[in-house]
């Protein structure tokens, strides 16, 4: 076991205990839930009301440890693993991102403001909103 970081699709970073087997990372089911919101249940991999069936349970979970690469494949997310630096990033696949953009429904997000307060896009819903992206660079 070693301590590592998972960067979830929404940018939340969680420190987790990773177990490593030949360059592959696995974590406990509770750590998976903490880092991603997904957890392994009898009906499959579940998050909120959604469950994804798990056909090959042995590939996903061994000795109570969930393989992160297999997890990402099942929930159709991209994964980048830096095994040397114990850091993993999960992200939306291009195809799924394109599909969600095409619905034209504005996705919510929560970010810190310049005073460190957490602000959600949905805090300002039911009115016209101009989302303005800028940067200092």
């Amino acid at each position: 076991m070693t301590v590592g970081q998972i960067i979830n699709v929404d940018g939340e970073v969680t420190m987790v205990e990773l177990s490593e087997q030949s360059g592959e990372f696995a974590i406990s089911n509770s750590a998976l839930e903490q880092a991603t919101g997904w957890s392994l249940k009898p009906e499959g991999l579940c998050r909120e009301q959604v469950c994804v069936p798990v056909r090959n349970a042995a590939a996903l979970s061994k000795d109570g440890q969930v393989d992160l690469g297999e997890f990402a494949r099942l929930v159709q997310q991209n994964i980048v693993i830096d095994s040397q630096r114990k850091i993993v990033a999960l992200g939306e696949q291009a195809q799924n991102r394109s599909a969600s953009m095409s619905t034209l429904e504005a996705p919510d997000f929560t970010l810190p403001d310049i005073h460190g307060r957490q602000v959600s896009f949905s805090d300002y819903n039911r009115r016209k909103r101009l989302l303005l992206a800028w940067s200092s660079w």
């Binding site: 504005a106 997000f109 016209k128 989302l131 992206a133 800028w134």
Partner: peptide, 19 residues
């Protein structure tokens, strides 16, 4: 994250979202 969600590839950029 917002660049990813809204397809933003440069700045400054704007997206309009209605009521």
């Amino acid at each position: 994250i917002v660049a990813d969600l809204y397809g933003i590839v440069n700045v400054p950029a704007a997206v309009w979202v209605d009521e």
